[in-house]
Structures are given as structure tokens and as C-alpha cells.
Amino acid sequence: MDSASASVMLWRANAKDALRLERFFRQFDEVSFCEWQDAKCLRGVLVQKTTTAYLALDLNGEVVGAVLGGMLGSRGTINHLAVSPQYRAQGVGQRLVEAASADMKRVGVLRMFLFVDDANLAGKRFWTAQGFCEPRGETTFERDL
């Protein structure tokens, strides 16, 4: 683990962290953070037992990484993950994924999934390095409610 990563503390996010999460995720174009995902929405998500969320904090308590995911039955999803550029490639993202994965595994989740924008090549490399692969023969359908 790099010294920068070692100096980063993981904090389980709660409803009081909603605004910090919103502000952090909005900094990154590659994070598909919808306009309706504001602090009020996130507060509602963060109080659910099926949510896993962590902040990575530097020595000054500043957010340098975050992950937000959810669980439904035997499947879990990573909805958003971001790491500040100066902390990338130092294990922070991996630690966030491991923390969310441990939460999911603890409650019986057997498979995790996530979405990566086709143009996000760095994201694809990161998720492949974490052991994720693209599903074959599946098409995702979605709609806003």
C-alpha cells in the first residue's frame, strides 16, 4: 500500500454525509451522477439498510474518495465510485471497493454489478483489475421513475 493510501481513513457514510457525497461525486465527469441525485435524495438512500457507502478521508478530513452501492437479494451494485486524481493508482479505490464488497458479502450478496461508460477507458481498466468482467449476451434496460 502506498504511503498516500495508508494515510487515508475509510469512514462509513451516513445521512449526515449526504452533502459531502453529492459535492464530491459532482466533481467528476466520468461519474454518471444524475441531476436529481441531490443531498436530500442521498440522505434517503443512506438510511436504507441495503445501502453501502464509504468516504475516503485524508489526514485533514477532506474527502478524497467515495463509493456508494446497494443490495437486493443475492445481487449488489456499485452505483458510484470516485477517487481524487492525486490519490489514484495508490490503492484508495481498491480499498473502497473491498469495503463495499465486504458489506455485501456479509448479508449474502453473491454477485456484484456496475455500469461503466463506454468512453471511460480508465474506469474499464480499474474495474477489470478488481476482477469484474463485461457480461456477454446481456443488454441493460433502464428508465427514470
Rank of each mutant, 00 (worst) to 15 (best):
residue 121 L to C: 05
residue 36 W to V: 14
residue 27 Q to H: 12
residue 33 F to E: 02
residue 58 D to W: 09
residue 37 Q to F: 15
residue 65 G to F: 03
residue 88 R to S: 03
residue 75 R to D: 13
residue 101 S to P: 05
residue 18 A to H: 03
residue 98 E to M: 07
residue 3 S to L: 09
residue 54 Y to N: 05
residue 15 A to M: 10
residue 125 R to Q: 13
residue 138 E to H: 13
residue 14 N to W: 10
residue 116 V to P: 03
residue 86 Q to K: 12
residue 142 E to K: 09
residue 14 N to L: 08
residue 114 L to A: 01
residue 70 G to W: 13
residue 85 P to M: 07
residue 70 G to K: 09
residue 23 R to E: 14
residue 44 G to Y: 09
residue 106 R to F: 02
residue 138 E to K: 13
residue 36 W to A: 13
residue 42 L to V: 07
residue 41 C to I: 11
residue 54 Y to A: 01
residue 25 F to A: 08
residue 10 L to E: 00
residue 115 F to M: 08
residue 137 G to F: 07
residue 119 A to I: 12
residue 87 Y to I: 01
residue 8 V to I: 05
residue 38 D to M: 05
residue 18 A to E: 02
residue 38 D to V: 07
residue 15 A to N: 09
residue 61 G to L: 03
residue 65 G to Q: 05
residue 81 L to A: 06
residue 129 A to M: 04
residue 145 L to C: 12
residue 19 L to H: 05
residue 101 S to K: 15
residue 66 A to R: 01
residue 78 I to D: 00
residue 122 A to V: 12
residue 95 R to I: 02
residue 142 E to F: 14
residue 74 S to L: 14
residue 41 C to E: 12
residue 30 E to M: 12
residue 97 V to K: 00
residue 83 V to N: 00
residue 111 R to H: 07
residue 140 T to R: 15
residue 79 N to Y: 15
residue 101 S to A: 14
residue 33 F to M: 08
residue 112 M to E: 10
residue 49 K to G: 15
residue 120 N to T: 10
residue 70 G to C: 10
residue 99 A to F: 00
residue 137 G to V: 01
residue 123 G to N: 02
residue 38 D to E: 06
residue 43 R to M: 13
residue 6 A to Q: 13
residue 56 A to T: 08
residue 11 W to Q: 09
residue 26 R to M: 09
residue 106 R to N: 06
residue 22 E to P: 05
residue 68 L to W: 05
residue 47 V to P: 07
residue 22 E to M: 11
residue 5 S to F: 09
